[in-house]
């Protein structure tokens, strides 16, 4: 009889814990997006991509005024010119990407089976350059940001669709990005999670905090503070500096895994990049 009780209890425990053990990226995504839907029931998924401008009427109006003549348009034009100008060997960036690089930005970062690592679109642009005998471009701003702005513009309106394949290395990269996102760093001991999840919608020193879900849809972005375009990893570094932490280096495995997880959070939301922020 004791043995029967033991078996029944074991079975019950297994049934209860099964969904927890099997929780993967898709289950995470559903739970995370549900959290924000519940926290901000009046905001649609598209609204969430408007970040802090959901939470301050005056700033929203200023932002909409700026968007009458979006400052990123020059970058799109510059990026298109760079993208379509042949390398010295006669080839162009289009030769390195599927669909000639058109309308693919919303599917990056991607897990690369060959290297077993996450590849950002920025890294692939530079790989393309090197493959064609050109020097790589600096990662955070300038020409590379313009090229990404052009590529992102061809994806505008497409639903973000970052895939995490069901294979151990890809899942490990996703989990690493998640760990970084939720880990405290710096002397103030803030995690990305604290400001953009738990405290999203609140103000920190007079600035409204945007929601984690939706943020990745508008990168690269033109920031008035920068006076130009910047990539999402430039923003991560700025954020880390702001909290007094030592920023992760761009395009390292840790930074790319963070971008992988963070961008995955916006899956299903239309890409709205390049964007504009104060």
């Amino acid at each position: 009889m004791k043995r029967l009780y033991f078996i029944i209890i074991s079975l019950l425990i297994s049934l209860v814990t099964l969904p927890i053990v099997n929780a993967g990226p898709q289950e995470d995504l559903a739970a995370y997006q549900k959290y924000f839907n519940k926290k901000f029931p009046d905001l649609s998924a598209v609204d969430l991509s408007n970040g802090m401008y959901n939470f301050n009427k005056d700033k929203r109006e200023q932002w909409e005024d700026i968007m009458s003549f979006p400052p990123y348009e020059i970058a799109i034009d510059d990026g298109k010119a760079l993208f379509t100008t042949p390398f010295k060997n006669g080839k162009t960036y289009a030769s390195c990407f599927e669909k000639g690089g058109q309308a693919i930005a919303h599917t990056y970062p991607r897990f690369d089976k060959k290297s077993g690592k996450v590849k950002t679109l920025a890294a692939l642009v530079n790989e393309c350059r090197v493959k064609n005998g050109e020097k790589p471009l600096p990662y955070l701003k300038g020409k590379l940001a313009s090229i990404l702005a052009y590529m992102a513009d061809t994806s505008r309106g497409q639903l973000m669709n970052v895939e995490v394949p069901a294979e151990p290395a890809a899942l490990a990269a996703y989990e690493d990005g998640k760990r970084i996102y939720f880990t405290r760093r710096g002397p103030r001991a803030f995690a990305c999670y604290h400001c953009h999840w738990e405290a999203a919608g609140s103000k920190i020193r007079g600035n409204e905090l945007s929601t984690a879900v939706g943020q990745a849809t508008h990168f690269p972005t033109y920031r008035s503070k920068w006076g130009g375009m910047g990539t999402i990893q430039r923003r991560y570094k700025g954020c880390m500096k702001n909290i007094g932490a030592k920023p992760l280096k761009q395009q390292t495995e840790a930074m790319n895994n963070l971008e992988y997880f963070h961008t995955f959070l916006s899956n299903g939301i239309p890409m709205n990049a390049p964007g504009t922020r104060f």
């Binding site: 609140s202 103000k203 920190i204 020193r205 007079g206 905090l209």
Partner: peptide, 16 residues
């Protein structure tokens, strides 16, 4: 404290 808390005299106060 004012980055996260409102109080008298804090003109850049947060609401976290």
């Amino acid at each position: 404290c004012q980055a996260c808390h409102e109080f008298k005299g804090a003109d850049q106060a947060g609401t976290v």
